[in-house]
């Protein structure tokens, strides 16, 4: 059940307030949060988030200390995806509740621009988690590295569906695949790919960059 506006928790209200601040127009001053989720599966409705990794990117810099990494307790669990991300439902990591994870995430996100590979999926999963806890959807501007990558290629080489795996980006940018399939590891790879894509696109402003990304058009769940 969605909470009434006045019943929304303080952390949500703070988040909403920060969103209103917006982001500077100059790319090098803007704050991006590169995010990746590991989930029990690919179904937005029935699957759950097991971990979220995120890092903050400003002026081409990432501070190791500011990396965000949470592991969530979930009752839904799909043994098949364990093979991919290696996260067991009761793994050794410190697990927190979904709502506690959402609070931490919103505090970390603030008014940043969210960047993810197939951002619709990660944001969609987060939105579902927010909804289960009575909260509204994320309000940050979003960028999809799959789409931006497609745009960075010469026209003749672009794919019409804009679908590229993160592995394809690793190969294109010669990024080593260490830590692939951990949330923060994938977020890091995405961040490095994002920086190299920016270098190719050379957008004049944040607004122009956001325009290049119409992600919903391309995101179709597998």
């Amino acid at each position: 059940m969605a909470l009434k506006k006045e019943d929304l928790p303080a952390f949500w209200k703070n988040y909403e307030a920060s969103i209103k601040l917006g982001q500077p127009k100059t790319i090098s001053y803007a704050t991006f949060v590169v995010i990746d989720t590991e989930t029990t599966g690919f179904d937005l409705k029935n699957d759950r988030i097991l971990s979220i990794g995120a890092l903050r990117l400003r002026n081409g810099e990432i501070k190791a200390k500011e990396a965000f990494e949470v592991f969530l307790k979930q009752s839904t669990f799909d043994a098949r995806t364990v093979e991919i991300h290696g996260i067991l439902k009761k793994g050794p990591r410190n697990r927190i509740s979904e709502i506690a994870g959402m609070e931490k995430l919103l505090v970390f996100l603030k008014n940043s621009v969210i960047v993810a590979h197939h951002v619709g999926f990660d944001v969609g999963m987060v939105n579902q988690a927010l909804r289960r806890n009575g909260l509204p959807k994320l309000m940050n501007p979003k960028l999809d590295t799959a789409i931006l990558f497609n745009k960075s290629l010469p026209r003749t080489k672009r794919k019409t569906n804009g679908h590229y795996s993160l592995d394809a980006l690793c190969e294109a940018f010669e990024i080593p695949k260490t830590d692939r399939h951990t949330a923060l590891g994938d977020a890091y790879i995405t961040a490095i790919a994002f920086l190299q894509i920016l270098e190719k696109l050379k957008p004049a402003s944040l607004e122009q960059l956001l325009k290049k990304d119409r992600f919903w058009e391309f995101w179709k769940p597998a």
């Binding site: 081409g60 810099e61 990432i62 501070k63 190791a64 200390k65 920086l195 190299q196």
Partner: peptide
């Protein structure tokens, strides 16, 4: 020490 590191991308 590694936790204090900033990763910087330079074109």
């Amino acid at each position: 020490l590694s936790q204090e590191v900033t990763i910087i991308y330079k074109e």
